[in-house]
Simulated scan of single mutants.
Amino acid sequence: MFEALIDPTAGATLSGGATALAPRPADLHGRTVGLLANTKRNAEQFLDAVADLLATEHGAADVVRRRKLSITDPVPADTLAELVAACDVVVVGVGDCGSCSASAVADGLALEAAGVPAVVICSDAFTVSADAMARLQGSPGYDYITTAHPVAPLDADGIRERARLALPEIVGTLTSDGAAAA
């Protein structure tokens, strides 16, 4: 039985306006892809599978991996600065609970505000939390993608399959060509 209900947007500050999306590259060929994983089980494995697919199917050249130490806290300033300096695009995830979904959306918006295209991946059970954070940040309707819940108990084959299924939306969100085709 639950003893308390936790608000995943608690502590977030209301943004003064909508975050403008960073300009998208036409494609991912030769690009450096950042992966910002949280501490949820299988988040890093899911993002690694996405990176493998982006390299083999879309020509991504390099990967920068970073891991947040807390699912609920915003991306640390130094980690954000590293991703902004080193990456052409960033994949954030995996939001597989209410708090981490809200935090992932906040991280995606922080990357966008810093000029780096980002795609946030959340499991479909937590769209309410993700949408609430987008509204709180002044960006209602922020485009993130969903994968079926849950991600945590998947085996290696299940992770690869989920990444493969999410790939078209990931590419579509990160690129101008993909966005036009989507």
Rank of each mutant, 00 (worst) to 15 (best):
A26I: 06
G172C: 03
A179W: 14
P76F: 06
C122Y: 02
A61I: 03
R67D: 10
V119F: 00
A60W: 01
V75T: 14
V94E: 04
L165Y: 07
S139L: 04
S103F: 01
G16V: 04
A60G: 01
P168M: 00
T39C: 03
E44K: 15
G59Q: 04
S139F: 01
T146I: 07
S176P: 09
T13N: 12
A10D: 09
T9I: 11
V128Q: 12
T32N: 03
G138C: 10
I170H: 08
F2D: 11
V116L: 06
V64D: 12
A60T: 06
V84D: 04
V84K: 10
L54P: 08
L174K: 11
S123V: 14
V63R: 09
G16A: 07
P25I: 05
E169R: 15
V105W: 02
V89D: 03
R162P: 01
R65T: 11
A156R: 15
A130K: 00
Y142K: 04
S70D: 13
C100R: 07
P23G: 02
S70T: 08
A182C: 07
V50F: 06
Q45N: 13
A134P: 01
G98Y: 03
G98T: 01
C87D: 09
F46C: 06
T9M: 01
P74Q: 09
D124E: 05
A113V: 00
L167S: 02
P153E: 11
G138F: 09
R41Y: 13
D78M: 06
A37N: 06
D52T: 15
A106C: 11
D96E: 02
V33C: 01
D7A: 05
E57S: 09
L47N: 05
G115A: 06
D52P: 07
S99L: 05
A148N: 11
A86C: 10
A20P: 03
A102C: 02
L47I: 04
G108M: 08
C122L: 05
T13Y: 09
C87G: 08
D7F: 02
H58I: 00
V105C: 04
G115Y: 05
E169I: 01
L54A: 12
